[in-house]
Nucleic acid binder design. Structure first.
Length: 103
DNA sequence: ATTTTGACTTAAG
DNA sequence: GCTTAAGCCAAAA
């Protein structure tokens, strides 16, 4: 099993419980490099672990639907998260209620 | 080993 | 809310 930065990201992303979201910066921090939020996005776009890695549960630092290339992009992402049980605060995710703390 | 790039973030217009 | 600019980081070529 490889032990690179991305491996940690995938592992953490897989652990995101349903109805919760996490920010790119948060994942980067949990992986050991708080400034590598961009890399997290890159790995999500690659998404080598396919449906196993719920990349749609990864949002911007503000709960904004950043990224997502599938469907209608951020628009479809918002619908998916809402179905998962994530609370929404207008156009953004309600981080105060649905932000995954990494545990 | 060097360069390019990008699903980030923050600041400013 | 969107775009531009700069900073930071790791992967891919």
């Amino acid at each position: 099993m490889e032990s690179s930065f991305k491996e940690k990201i995938y592992k953490l992303t897989k652990q995101i419980p349903k109805g919760k979201v996490v920010t790119y910066a948060q994942l980067a921090r949990l992986a050991g490099s708080p400034k590598a939020a961009r890399v997290v996005g890159l790995l999500m776009r690659n998404n080598p672990y396919a449906p196993q890695v719920p990349c749609h549960r990864v949002v911007g630092v503000d709960g904004s639907l950043v990224g997502y290339s599938a469907g209608k992009g951020t628009s479809s992402k918002r619908e998916v998260l809402k179905k998962e049980g994530v609370k929404f605060k207008g156009p953004k995710v309600d981080l105060s209620a649905s932000l995954w703390n990494g545990r």
